[in-house]
Simulated assay, not measured.
Amino acid sequence: MTSFSRITALILMTSTIYLPTSHADTSLPDAKTLGLVNLEGDFSRQQLFNEILATDASRNNEYQSFAVKKSFKFPNDVSYDDVLKQPRKDALFGVDISHHNGKNFPVEILANNKSIFLYMKASQGSRFVDPAFAGFWQRAGETDKGVKLHRGAYHFLSSGTPGEDAAQWGRKQAATFVKIIKANGGLRSTDMPPAVDVEWDIERRNGPDRWVNRKPAEVIAMVKAFSAHVETELGRKPIIYTARSWWVPRMGGEASFAQLADHQLWLADYSNQSQASEIPRTLNNTKWAIWQFTDAAKFHTGSVPPFDASIFKGPSADFYSVLGVKEF
């Protein structure tokens, strides 16, 4: 596998243009080997949110906090809060990506740009693997080459076919996710907890959210079944990624999130200023572990398109104890 050297990483970190690279590795498990299908034509998170704004105007009040954002820039905004005009304390940042970010997303320079964790999309539904996952996962795990990132994998939960048993469908999706993780070497003690993404499930442009065909009790049953299977197979309980702006209207309120209180929450609530100084809207007063506050983060230098960024608020020791992650 062709990888960035430390010298190249330093060049990339200071250059205004990122050098084109190739990270093809024919030894990595591919969709055919796994008996799966490469994910394509799916919506990125940014596209999902734009679709919801365009097609669900009746719920605009739920989306007011998702305003047009100023771009959070790594590493400058990690160290200094430009809103409060002071050095930032007790704040650890991370990034999440998928094939939508391009297979040459510069994973190797994240740590030098003060990102300490990286989540990568692994799968969706029961048939689809993200074609960029294997490459991202391997590159993010090259600690012998100086890459110090706590890796995380996430699964995009699909609503499935109406009438299909929700718990059974949740287990099927978990089996696909587990297969992909194991085929790529499994989890390390330094990796982030696996994540399950529960949000808008839109198949086509201007299409409806397919979760409308599931009752709230079915959604809970599906998430629980997915989580239980993953924990049994991988030894880690998944963290739940969701947004209050999806959960409240789709689940008939926020109280139902109490049924998942034994899970940690990765909250999506986009900040007005994207400087991570606001307080996000959580669910049922749940204390969130990670907050995804923008989909428009950038590097201070370079031409990489915007990407998602999240924050853990608290001292470093809490990050490791709360998330069950071992330090390098």
Rank of each mutant, 00 (worst) to 15 (best):
F307N: 05
N206D: 04
E51R: 07
E108C: 09
G185S: 07
G135R: 04
G170T: 03
S5L: 03
D197V: 09
W247L: 08
T14D: 15
G141F: 11
A276E: 06
Y119W: 10
D318P: 04
N285E: 09
T286Q: 13
K70E: 14
K85T: 03
F312I: 02
R205T: 13
W200L: 00
D191K: 08
V78W: 12
N104K: 02
S22M: 06
Q264I: 03
Y320S: 03
L92D: 03
D96W: 01
D295W: 02
Y154I: 05
Q273M: 08
A221E: 07
R88C: 10
Y320M: 06
G186K: 13
P194R: 08
S58Q: 13
F257L: 10
A167D: 06
L36P: 05
P208A: 04
S303M: 05
A111Y: 12
P208C: 06
S245A: 15
T282F: 08
S22G: 12
N285S: 14
N284Q: 13
Q292G: 04
R188W: 10
L323P: 13
Q259W: 01
Q275E: 09
K70S: 15
K148A: 14
Q124G: 03
Y119N: 07
A195V: 15
S256T: 12
F226E: 04
V304E: 14
L283P: 12
A175N: 09
I180V: 13
D201F: 09
S303N: 15
S274Y: 11
D165A: 12
V212W: 01
T2M: 08
Y63V: 11
I220N: 06
K172I: 06
K287N: 12
M251Q: 14
E231L: 04
Y241H: 11
H155S: 03
F293M: 00
I7S: 13
D42V: 11
K114G: 06
R59F: 08
L19D: 06
V95T: 10
T143S: 13
D201T: 03
P162D: 07
T8Y: 11
S44P: 02
R205L: 14
V248T: 12
T301C: 06
M13S: 15
A111H: 11
P194C: 02
V198G: 00
G152I: 01
D144Y: 11
V325E: 04
H100C: 00
S245P: 01
E199Y: 05
N76P: 00
D82F: 15
D295L: 14
F66Q: 15
V304F: 08
P305K: 11
D30G: 14
V212C: 01
R171I: 01
A175H: 03
E203N: 05
I311P: 00
K85P: 00
N101R: 04
E254W: 05
F328E: 12
P162C: 08
E233Q: 15
S159R: 05
G160N: 10
F72T: 02
S245Y: 14
V107E: 01
D191L: 06
D77F: 10
F257C: 00
L118Q: 05
A167L: 02
V198N: 06
A174E: 07
S98M: 04
Y63E: 09
K148Y: 09
G102R: 02
K179W: 01
T21V: 14
H150V: 00
S245I: 07
S245K: 09
D42C: 01
T33M: 10
F177M: 05
S15Y: 05
I11N: 10
E108D: 15
P216I: 00
F74Y: 15
W169E: 08
R171E: 06
L265K: 02
S303R: 11
D56H: 12
Q168T: 14
V196H: 02
